[in-house]
């Protein structure tokens, strides 16, 4: 058990380091000289001496390896560097931006879970019924379509309908949780699709297992079988896609925050790309990788609690 924990943590640190290195290569080594590109813009009217000073400030005049060691060292100390665009410490910018994204993620994740479970329960219960089977097969085709809905489009339509046409929720002048309510719900719809698909596939496979027949032969009602047997069995495999869902939420956050004008990590990332602000972009990548890894670890540690067959050694079960 402890050994397992140890190797998993070691692997997580390795992946974090790898992602850091990859993003460093991608953003700082390969483009050549980001600072040079930025400040050589004739519109800024800087003379060569000023540019050289700037480069020295950002450490861009050193070799790639020295830079790498320098950046790695300061990152390990919790210093994420300075934004080229605003000149502010990246850490402060992230601190200001992350609450919005976190709220958005929580709302959309909770919404997606509720949506997908209601959806699947409905479809599974209906499929027990003779005439309901057709409705059920129709319902189970819906995630295949919702997974293809572009988030940005859905949100534009949602603003138009909910805020302007029906005037239910205003778009401007909101803060905190109320500001992310509508965006979170809109984001939840496409995110619920992969969850629902995995949940439905596993639930249908569980439904075919011999023990379900044995339970029916004991006189249990379909609803009881669904709630206390099929759902507990289908839930742990669904957890394995949580990492994927996290990535989708982040991708959604970039778009959502742009559409709704929210000051979150997604907006920050989008601005960093637009202005080629590599330090900010790299910090955001690092944070999201850390989030991805911790969610993966968390789901791996929760799984044995939900499914006793999975030992803490990560053994997979076989259906």
């Amino acid at each position: 058990m402890t050994r397992y924990l140890f190797t998993r943590t070691l692997h997580a640190i390795f992946v974090l380091w790898g992602a850091f290195t990859l993003s460093f290569i991608l953003l700082q080594v390969m483009p050549g000289d980001a600072v040079l590109v930025k400040f050589q813009d004739p519109e800024l009217g800087l003379n060569p001496q000023q540019i050289a000073d700037m480069r020295a400030t950002y450490g861009a005049d050193e070799s790639a390896i020295t830079q790498y060691i320098h950046v790695l060292g300061r990152t390990l100390h919790g210093n994420l560097g300075y934004s080229i665009e605003t000149g502010l410490p990246v850490g402060h910018m992230l601190q200001a931006a992350y609450p919005t994204t976190l709220r958005l993620a929580i709302i959309s994740f909770a919404g997606a879970i509720i949506l997908s479970i209601t959806f699947c329960t409905l479809a599974l219960l209906l499929s027990e019924h003779v005439t309901g089977r057709y409705i059920a097969s129709f319902i189970s085709a819906i995630p295949g379509i919702t997974s293809g809905i572009p988030v940005f489009w859905l949100e534009i339509v949602a603003i138009q309908l909910v805020s302007f046409h029906w005037k239910l929720i205003p778009v401007v002048g909101l803060s905190g949780w109320s500001a992310v309510f509508l965006p979170g719900l809109a984001l939840a719809i496409p995110i619920s699709a992969p969850l629902a698909q995995v949940f439905m596939t596993t639930a249908k496979r569980v439904q075919q297992l011999p023990f379900i027949d044995v339970l029916r032969a004991r006189g249990l009602s379909p609803f009881r079988i669904l709630c206390s047997h099929i759902i507990p069995n289908a839930f742990p495999p669904t957890l394995t896609v949580s990492g994927l869902v996290f990535g989708e939420i982040l991708a959604g956050a970039v778009v959502t925050e742009t559409v709704f004008g929210l000051d979150g990590l997604g907006q920050l990332a989008q601005q960093a790309v637009a202005s080629q602000d590599v330090a900010v972009l790299q910090a955001i990548i690092l944070i999201s990788v850390a989030g991805f890894i911790s969610i993966g670890l968390l789901s791996e540690f929760i799984q044995p609690l939900l499914d006793p067959r999975i030992g803490r050694n990560g053994q997979q079960r076989k259906y």
Partner: peptide
């Protein structure tokens, strides 16, 4: 390593 970075980023 590559998978750990969200695709959009």
């Amino acid at each position: 390593i590559v998978l750990s970075i969200p695709e959009i980023f």
